[in-house]
Computed example of a mutant assay.
Amino acid sequence: MYIKDVCSKCKLTKKAVEYYEQQGLIYPKVLENGYRIYSEEDINKLKEIGALRKIGISIADIKDILESNNKSAALSKCKYKMNLEFEKSIAKKKCLEQLIKDYNIDNALKYIEENIDKFFTIKEKLLQSFPGWYGMYLSIHFGQFLNGKIDTEEKENAYKKIVEYLDKIEGIQLPDELEEYLLQSTEYLEDVDMQKINNIILDAVNNTEEYLKQNKEDIEKYLEFKNSDEYKNSIAYKMQQLLLKFQQESGYYDIFIKNLKILSDSYREYFEKLQAANKIFLDKYPQIDNTYNRL
């Protein structure tokens, strides 16, 4: 079935169907002329995706649901997250109503500590603690691993060490032009954009050999650009050098990364896969300094 008929049957726009393909949710057959043929399985998945999106389930969760052998269990996880968000919204509304009534900030802070803080994800807590460009940097690079909550004493201690470390570090002040560059480059990133970027990174780490094979030409062009005078005179290069210097001299790996692996099980698993992927990449492209690939 061609995309026009698929859109009509599934009640989706062409752009939506194309987006779900880009996200790796469906895999239509591509003909030599570039036209796509959608199978009955693709159509059923698109109907499923459409229904799940309309009840507010994220693309990442939909991917887990589609791949799960136990749909009910996968959906129950989504329901649990929705319940938490609902309870958090009710608590926020009550706090707002109280502020409208008497605007007592001390009472509001006490209410937030007792009734709202427990609902925040690790990512939300870090963004609140570190507003501005560094909070954005943390969210962009680590946000996908920080959607859980602090639910053990070990994680609580790890979180405190991370916050203490980030709050005390020196030497990470950016020149005005670099701070403006980072803020502008991240200001318009939507959650779907971040999910797409994260999917690309995860695919490269999980399937390194295949990723290098499929993207050989693009990787070689990228490496050529990284060695060019144009790149070395760019703001992006200045930003990278500042961050690399900071990471090497500040205890970034010994404190931040060490405790991040305690705080997030998913990051610990990713880090181990990343180390293996780096080795494969450096074996193929030994001219590249491995510090470019460390997260």
Results as ranks from 00 to 15, higher is better:
K29D: 08
E97T: 05
D218C: 01
K92R: 15
Y270A: 06
L274V: 08
Q287Y: 04
K54V: 00
L75H: 01
N290E: 13
Y80I: 14
Q173G: 00
L96F: 11
F246Q: 13
S68W: 07
Y165F: 15
L242T: 11
E269S: 14
K81F: 02
Y270W: 06
Q214D: 14
E220V: 05
E113V: 12
G251I: 08
A158M: 09
R294M: 09
Y211G: 06
Q214M: 10
A16R: 02
K245L: 06
N104Q: 11
I262Q: 06
I201W: 06
L295I: 15
E97I: 05
E21M: 04
Y181G: 05
D283T: 13
K216T: 09
E164A: 14
A51E: 13
I200S: 13
I257H: 08
G34T: 10
E113G: 04
L46T: 03
D229P: 04
D254Q: 13
C7Q: 05
I105W: 03
M82G: 01
V6A: 03
C10R: 02
D106R: 10
A158R: 10
I288R: 07
K110C: 07
S250A: 10
L46I: 06
S58Q: 06
K47A: 00
T121E: 09
N44R: 11
L31T: 12
K93Y: 14
K213T: 13
S68G: 05
R53V: 07
L31I: 01
S76Q: 08
Y38G: 02
L174I: 11
Q128R: 15
L183S: 10
S250M: 09
F271E: 11
K196T: 12
K110R: 14
L242K: 15
S264A: 03
K14V: 06
N104Y: 07
K79G: 00
I235C: 03
D5F: 00
I65P: 02
D191R: 04
L178W: 07
S76M: 07
E187W: 06
I150H: 08
I288G: 01
A204K: 15
E40K: 11
E210R: 15
K79E: 09
Q184E: 15
K110S: 13
E156N: 08
E67S: 13
L260N: 06
Y20T: 08
E67L: 12
H141C: 07
Y27E: 14
K279S: 05
I122E: 05
Y188G: 02
K155Y: 01
D117P: 00
I122W: 05
E21R: 07
A73N: 03
C7M: 07
L99G: 03
D5R: 06
D265H: 11
Y20L: 09
L202W: 06
